[in-house]
């Protein structure tokens, strides 16, 4: 709609425009070249998902395998399990992660004082900086059977120590906590950036009208965050079939007994293929994840654009 309005002016200044567009495109040249080399040409390598990869023959010389590389993903009893885990964790992470981050961002906005704000913002970012491997040691420090804090706490209150690393039932909660812990600082700041961009006169007007804090949040802050929320959620949906490998592989200390709760598609593929070195099969899994994620984004975006076309990603 906007396009039609612009078009006439475009035509008028045709001469200037072509020089302008040339200049603009020339700016993008380094980036375009980079994306082509780093992203698009290797994408052609996805064809290896349909090949029986032979190292001597390379990607193009290897023989075709049809869909043979995909079948192992569905042959196991775990297939359902790993897909369910991947999706459920992602859904929980998206929902809880965003709720937590938005809450923190709004609280940060209501907070007075410069110094404390700054300190809080710095400190909550720390978890984001610690790599998952190191996090796994820290988690072990908390959950180890006889020297872990949690068990020390439990026994101090007269309970019996829990063997955390052998019982799968606890891990959906543990992994969710670890994920939220490591990411909440960063995403809070992303939301906070949007929150402070909301016109402050809106709040003033509202409070003159007698709206309390909750009403202000509900009617001003959250609508102001709408586009940011939708964008981030849609982007996260594109990664719906992927998982944070470090979180699911390192943090459970690779304890096999936990695998029913901790195996996601990435972890399963990694574990399954370390013995086989099968490039074709791992590509097949990656391709499937991308395509499914792509479909997720497209359909979610379609729904969003039906309801509220301004917020749609594209």
């Amino acid at each position: 709609m906007a396009k039609t309005a612009v078009k006439p002016s475009k035509k008028k200044g045709m001469k200037g425009t072509s020089r302008t567009s040339l200049a603009l495109i020339s700016m993008m040249v380094p980036g375009i070249i980079y994306l082509i080399i780093n992203n698009y040409i290797p994408m052609a390598g996805l064809v290896v998902a349909f090949k029986q990869f032979d190292y001597a023959k390379g990607i193009w010389g290897s023989g075709w395998a049809g869909f043979g590389n995909f079948t192992y993903l569905f042959k196991t009893r775990d297939a359902f399990n790993i897909v369910r885990n991947t999706l459920l964790y992602n859904i929980v992470f998206i929902i809880l992660g965003n709720i937590l981050a938005i809450t923190v961002a709004i609280m940060l906005n209501f907070l007075k004082g410069q110094m404390n704000k700054k300190v809080y913002q710095t400190l909550i970012l720390i978890p984001y900086l610690i790599s998952m491997v190191v996090v796994s040691y820290i988690v072990y420090g908390f959950l180890s059977m006889d020297s872990g804090f949690v068990n020390k706490l439990i026994t101090a209150f007269g309970g019996t120590a829990v063997s955390w690393y052998t019982q799968a039932k606890y891990w959906p909660v543990i992994l969710t906590i670890v994920h939220l812990w490591s990411g909440f600082g960063y995403s809070s700041i992303v939301y906070y950036a949007t929150v402070i961009g909301i016109d402050s006169s809106l709040y003033e007007a509202a409070s003159i009208d007698g709206a309390n804090v909750w009403k202000q949040i509900w009617h001003i802050t959250l609508p102001g965050l709408r586009i940011t929320i939708i964008t981030l959620v849609l982007m996260a949906m594109g990664r719906m079939f992927y998982s944070d490998f470090g979180l699911f592989y390192q943090v459970p200390m690779r304890s096999g007994l936990l695998s029913s709760a901790t195996d996601t598609i990435d972890v399963f593929v990694y574990k399954a293929l370390t013995q086989l070195n099968d490039v074709g099969r791992s590509s097949a899994a990656g391709l499937l994840q991308s395509v499914l994620g792509f479909i997720m984004v497209l359909s979610a975006n379609l729904i969003v654009s039906k309801v509220d076309s301004d917020s749609a990603l594209f």
Binding site: N38, N39, P42, G45, L46, V48, L287, V297
Partner: peptide, 18 residues
Amino acid sequence: FVFFTMLFNGGLVPTYMM
């Protein structure tokens, strides 16, 4: 052109070979 790269990648081996 940009958005596509966020969803699809060629995987490690093709990228490495490139």
